[in-house]
Amino acid sequence: MLFVVTVYVICFLWGTAMHLVDLAGGGHNSYSSPAPAPIRFYFVALVVLDPLVVALLIRLRPIAVIVAGAVMVVDVSANYYVNWPQISQHPDYLLRPLGLLPFTLFALFVAVTASPLYRHLARLARARKLIGHNIG
């Protein structure tokens, strides 16, 4: 499970960096595309949500998996919504190495690993709680 947590942390840190670069380049108007305001707001909010996931993962909190899954579901949905005109006209748009391909692969990785990772982190949390009660 250490590998899974490491992949999550690296990818969410990468996402944080990409959103910070976007914001540094264009401020709050970085996402002023034809996307609706809630989607643009969400993309800006990812500079807080992505590092939140990382912080929770580093602390090995089971809630990290729930937050990570929710962030990815909304993020994937929003990205496909915004990019659908390009995807529908040029399906190879998905295969561009720095486009939606790595993002989609990570989202699939989260979908496949979320349940086992949650169970593992929940077991760790229960063990920490038992150890804490036995010490006190």
Score class of each variant (00 low, 15 high):
V82W: 08
L105Q: 01
P116V: 00
S30L: 06
T16K: 02
Y42R: 06
G25T: 05
N79H: 13
H120T: 13
P36W: 14
G15L: 06
Y42G: 04
L94M: 10
G136K: 10
G69K: 07
A17C: 05
Y8Q: 05
S115N: 07
A35F: 08
Y93K: 12
I10D: 04
L108I: 13
L117Y: 07
A64N: 07
Y31A: 02
H133G: 02
S33M: 09
L46R: 11
V54G: 10
G26Q: 08
P97V: 11
V74H: 11
V74Q: 10
V110I: 04
M1Q: 09
S77R: 10
A70C: 14
F103Q: 13
R96E: 02
A35Q: 09
N29G: 14
Y42N: 02
A45N: 07
D22V: 04
Y81P: 00
A127I: 09
H28V: 13
Y93L: 01
S32H: 13
L23A: 12
H28T: 15
L121F: 05
P102V: 09
R123A: 12
I66R: 02
V44W: 03
G25E: 09
I66M: 10
P38K: 11
Y81H: 14
A64F: 02
L49H: 07
V71I: 07
A37L: 15
V82P: 08
Y80M: 11
I66N: 05
G132N: 12
L108T: 03
P116N: 01
A68M: 00
L20H: 00
L60F: 12
